[in-house]
Design a binder for these strands. Structure first.
Ligand code: SF4
Ligand code: SF4
Lengths: 134, 134
DNA sequence: ATTAAATGCTATATAGAGGTATCATTTTAT
DNA sequence: ATAAAATGATACCTCTATATAGCATTTAAT
């Protein structure tokens, strides 16, 4: 009942970048700032780059930066990339076909909570996120 | 962002049992009713048995049944056993130490949603769950 | 007593997420 | 030109959740 590490890493990286826009950040530097294992960090950066969240520049003085304005990148977009949002559409009890006649006692309550969360994820951008960052 | 299969299987099994209390259900029969891989089902049943959720009887006509009244077994108890509830206490972005000065824009909203879910899980018993079962 | 039907136990296999290691390529500083 | 500092690409390792297999033990029916 949590996002994957890859998702968390991605959110971590992007929110950091949003707070340091206009700066070109190398994997080496990001490694020193965030606690993400270096080689895995590299892979995540490649993934974010290939999918249009960040731009990369090679060679000495190369690095990464946000590809678009932080206000246009939403948390849900990132999660969609890293692990998908399908989980939010599944039965909480994990049933493929619901065995209950109408609905079980938990169905609607769960649905509501889940929709609340989805709403948050879809409406919160990286720009919203960093407003109060140190 | 979902419960583990083991959690879902456990919930599946126990809610079925709650709806068939007083009946002694064999692994073989449960296998025919629920879609859980047989050998894994056996392991999950053993786990539930060892942890006091169900009682087992061996030999011919053996099987499993709820160890206590369905109204005393809460969803949260089951999840606590199978995967723990620690996930509900973690930062949504997966940060070990929060990099934000006060809170990020998502913190409180997330907290609220998460508490709602926890509340549901803690207040809903197997008895509540099956009220409308087929 | 014997057999069949059940759980108890435990070893092993599989798949996927997470993590590591290397070499190739590009760019900049000297 | 050469070396250094960076990303691109890819192969492999490891760990855990999930799944499979088989033998041991218990109980009930005959
Ligand atoms: S009613 Fe309950 S069991 Fe059925 S799909 Fe909804 S949450 Fe799942
Ligand atoms: S403020 Fe945001 S980043 Fe910090 S702990 Fe809360 S959710 Fe995580």
């Amino acid at each position: 009942m949590n996002f994957s590490k890859t998702t968390s890493y991605s959110l971590n990286i992007l929110s950091y970048m949003a707070n340091h826009s206009d700066e070109n950040l190398s994997a080496d530097f990001l490694y020193s700032q965030l606690g993400i294992p270096y080689q895995y960090l590299r892979q995540v950066l490649t993934n974010l780059s290939k999918n249009g969240f960040i731009n990369s520049s090679r060679g000495r003085k190369g690095g990464f930066e946000l590809a678009r304005d932080a206000s246009t990148i939403f948390i849900a977009d990132i999660i969609e990339l890293t692990e998908g949002l399908e989980g939010f559409n599944k039965c909480v009890l994990g049933f493929e076909t619901c065995p209950f006649d109408n609905k079980c006692a938990i169905h609607d309550l769960w649905d509501e909570s889940r929709n609340n969360i989805l709403k948050i994820l879809k409406e919160t951008s990286l720009a919203n996120l960093i407003i109060k960052q140190k």
